[in-house]
């Protein structure tokens, strides 16, 4: 091989490397553009609406007269969905994880884990359908006063939706607890219940907590199920049987209509999305941080 051709190979190599770098760097650009767009439009929004009104106002009626831009009803609606995760996905997910990591045979595990993954792979719009056509009628069967669109139904299906994620992350956390701790506890005359609830779960608690934080983040960002099942009524309520609206559902509602760019309504999209983005980002960073810390304990 001549010196020249060797050099041309090297040239090609360095061009390739730059192309590869750009592909990887695209993700950083994406984040930067998202943040830029959100902040720019949100700042324009704050020229018309004060930050205080937006963050602490208790009425959200940007599409009706008299217009009002207090995000708290949307936050309350989102919080109701999160309650569903806390009451449903967390306990069931932990119980599934306990079963998978402490009791299940390798065979049972190999069947149940993929089954739960199927639940995770079902598109969210399907959960919306399920909420509306199955869960809501079921609730109304027991509590006839329930509104057709209600927070409870959406919260339940969002809970089901994030369940596999909670179960799988908690399973990881419990399995990361060294076997020697279990054996230590058994050698002291503990039953499997005592070993699980007093040694294994406490040792994996930070992982379980991280799973919960990440699941809450998922629930806050969930869109289709809440849009279909929870309704479009910004409602500062804690009653899960009433129609509410979440931040995500509001964004969908506006984009379903024909909103001209530059209008105040158009800007509310970005203001709400900024809150949504910031909240989920903080939760995700917090969640992964806890997860990384608890891994270090045993490594």
């Amino acid at each position: 091989m001549t010196a020249l051709s060797r050099k041309s190979i090297r040239w090609g190599e360095s061009i390739l490397e730059r192309v590869f770098f750009l592909c990887a760097f695209l993700s950083v650009i994406t984040t930067a553009v998202v943040i830029f767009i959100l902040i720019r439009e949100t700042l324009i929004f704050f020229e018309s609406v004060s930050v205080t009104e937006f963050l602490f106002g208790t009425r959200w009626t940007p599409l009706l007269e008299p217009k009002s831009y207090g995000i708290l009803p949307l936050v309350a609606g989102t919080a109701l969905i999160v309650v569903g995760v806390a009451l449903l996905a967390l306990p069931i997910g932990v119980a599934c994880a306990v079963f998978l990591s402490e009791y299940a045979s390798a065979r049972a595990r190999s069947i149940i884990k993929p089954t739960l993954e199927i639940l995770a792979g079902i598109p969210t719009v399907v959960y919306g359908f399920f909420a509306l056509t199955f869960v809501t009628p079921l609730i109304r069967n027991f509590i006839p006063d329930t509104q057709v669109f209600n927070a409870a139904s959406a919260a339940i299906v969002v809970g089901i939706m994030v369940l596999p994620m909670v179960a799988s992350l908690c399973d990881d956390a419990l399995r990361a607890v060294p076997q020697s701790l279990r054996h230590g506890a058994y050698s002291l005359g503990a039953t499997s219940f005592e070993v699980t609830t007093r040694v294994v779960v406490p040792a994996g608690l930070s992982g379980i907590f991280a799973a919960f934080v990440l699941a809450v983040s998922r629930a806050i960002g969930e869109t289709m199920a809440v849009t279909l099942a929870a309704g479009a009524t910004p409602n500062l309520t804690l009653n899960p049987l009433e129609s509410i609206q979440t931040m995500t559902a509001y964004i969908v509602q506006v984009s379903l209509g024909d909103t001209p760019a530059g209008s105040l309504t158009y800007q509310t999209l970005f203001a709400v999305a900024t809150v949504l983005f910031a909240t989920t980002l903080i939760l995700n960073i917090f969640g992964t941080w806890i997860m990384r810390r608890f891994r270090e304990v045993y490594e």
Binding site: S180, L181, H183, G184, G189, T191, A203
Partner: peptide, 27 residues
């Protein structure tokens, strides 16, 4: 469990619970 109450064990590698010294012994 009844057997292990009478016959305790110390393992090759120390395996204290991630709890306080007191609670390890009192557990």
């Amino acid at each position: 469990v009844e057997a292990r109450l009478r016959i305790g064990m110390v393992f090759q590698k120390a395996n204290p619970f991630p709890k306080s010294i007191y609670r390890n012994v009192a557990w």
